[in-house]
Design a protein around this nucleic acid. Structure first.
Lengths: 203, 203
DNA sequence: CTTGCTACTGAGTACCTACTAGGTATTAAC
DNA sequence: GTTAATACCTAGTAGGTACTCAGTAGCAAG
């Protein structure tokens, strides 16, 4: 008697769409457990396919992480530009009339609406401090880039700009963690606005 | 022929001493890989004993994490008090003549000397954002406590104090991450001093 | 020297890990 | 309708996971 394979409802998706789903599911799981706590099995389950099916699309666990991060980079600049009502290529152009404070406010406003992704980055940012982490290099460069871009919008000489940019990033990261830990009693946008007043209006 | 057990150099330690060693080794490993990436095997290897031997002392992986955190709490207040040259019970006493700025400077100075432990907390702080994490509650309370203690040293009304304390914590956490990511080109103490100037000397 | 305590081990359980090889079933192009 | 591409599967590998059980080896007090 042949084993009758239970004709499981099989949803065969086109590669691009499946990939989108995989990245979405992975994003949530990494935010929950970090990369070291992530299992391909959980991702596969979340997508309704088997582990080899998942690997067919992403190749390896490390590749999956990189895919997630690259996907974020693609959407990031776009949503930020939309928030500022500016064309993407005008975002970091000096003299476009956008102040550092405006960009920060836009960043925070956007982040306040997607706690899951903020948590993803918070967890990976800490995990990837270790040199052996697959996202170590990515986060090093990301940090450098955003700091330089923010610095380009700040006033003063180069040293002062770089310093302020670093402090702004530190404050945003820190406030976001506090917000994620206790979202109910924290208003991220308001907390940032108060902090910005102190940062930007200092002597 | 009986199997001759290779008389491995067995170091039978008294429980307290072994526990100290276990906590020390675990601290380093969590800083490297996070709690989800920690394996009891690695801890056991690092201590020169078997996994059941390790479990004899700590009971379970979750217990081990809690032991590490509790140990830090015990030493934390002590070293901070020493740094400030004050008795432990005088640390958070109002009117003891210690300013918020002094405490922060002492905290940062101490942290600058133990990057490994700062990384341990950075990783766990992010990982434990997830409600299911074994240290979730611990970090919630820790955050609340330190914020209240710092607030008690700040000037102004209660709302202003609480706000400033939050910003101070955010800034310290953020700067520490930047420092850990690139220790060579960052001087944590100096970076904090500049940030403190902006935070405390604002209008 | 014996007794009792305990630090520790060896063997084993049940299960999860990422990943591979080789094949099947579905879709799209012609 | 046939062919080619490919989304996905079953089965398996080699190793890691926390943890348990039952016992052994070493120390200290009597």
């Amino acid at each position: 008697m042949k084993t009758q394979p239970i004709r499981r409802e099989r949803a065969r998706l086109p590669a691009a769409e499946r990939r989108r789903q995989i990245i979405e599911v992975t994003t949530g799981l990494i935010a929950e457990r970090g990369f070291w706590g992530l299992s391909m099995q959980d991702v596969a389950d979340g997508c309704g396919l088997t582990v080899p099916g998942l690997l067919h699309h992403v190749g390896s666990k490390d590749n999956l992480l990189i895919a997630v991060l690259e996907h974020r980079d693609e959407t990031d600049a776009a949503t930020l530009a939309a928030e500022l009502e500016v064309r993407v290529d005008q975002l970091w152009a000096e003299g476009a009339g956008i102040t550092l404070r405006q960009v920060c406010a836009a960043l925070v406003r956007r982040n306040a609406g997607q706690p899951e992704i903020v948590r993803l980055f918070a967890v990976l940012e800490a995990e990837s401090l270790a040199p052996g982490h697959p996202a170590h290099r990515y986060f090093r460069e990301r940090q450098r880039n955003t700091r330089e871009m923010l610095a380009s919008l700040a006033p003063g000489d180069d040293a002062a700009r770089f310093e302020l940019a670093g402090q702004v990033i530190a404050m945003m990261d820190g406030l976001q963690i506090q917000w994620l830990r206790d979202p109910a009693s924290t208003d991220l946008v308001a907390a940032w606005e108060r902090a910005a007043t102190r940062l930007f209006d200092a002597l």
